[in-house]
Design a protein around this nucleic acid. Structure first.
Length: 153
DNA sequence: GCCAACGTTGGC
DNA sequence: GCCAACGTTGGC
């Protein structure tokens, strides 16, 4: 079992939207960054847990948890010519982009703000602290426990 | 809306 | 395969 952090813009798709979705599940598609793609394709497994992080909003923060419920599989949007995520270079034999299904798990009563994360000397390794631009990043077991503890206190 | 950081593209 | 130009992201 591994831990991850998934970024989303709440204006486009928030944790509340995930909770409200059918079966509280959605396809996490549209990841179009190779490093992020590799984490999904080569690292993610059903049962993994992910922090959901809200970016490009008033208070950027880790707001809750979702579970990887299916996949990884080829991102269907890459074959959809009407999608913003369409990639003409992707083929069925050689998909370029990958997705997983994520299922809502919980919303933190006290979201962990980016400000808090940056100010916390105990958080050293978290990728979010260094480059906030990656849309999928791994979280170590230690980081997960520590952050989860903050959100639950 | 600005700007820094960083990933991607394409010419050579 | 290098690197400059360009586009995108995201915090502020």
């Amino acid at each position: 079992m591994a831990y991850w952090l998934l970024k989303t813009e709440p204006d486009a798709f928030s944790l509340a939207d995930l909770q409200a979705a059918p079966n509280s599940t959605t396809v996490w598609d549209g990841v179009r960054n190779y490093q992020a793609r590799n984490f999904i394709r080569d690292g993610m497994q059903v049962g993994d847990k992910a922090f959901i992080y809200h970016s490009s909003c008033k208070v950027p923060a880790i707001v809750g948890v979702a579970t990887i419920s299916k996949g990884p599989f080829a991102d269907p949007a890459q074959y959809d010519a009407s999608s913003d995520y369409y990639d003409p270079k992707a083929t069925a034999d050689a998909p370029r982009w990958f997705s997983v299904d994520v299922k809502y798990a919980e919303t933190f009563a006290k979201p962990i703000t980016l400000q808090q994360i940056k100010a916390d000397p105990a958080i050293v390794e978290l990728a979010l602290k260094k480059s906030g631009r990656l849309s999928v990043m791994p979280v170590t077991n230690e980081e997960w426990q520590y952050l989860y503890g903050i959100a639950s206190n």
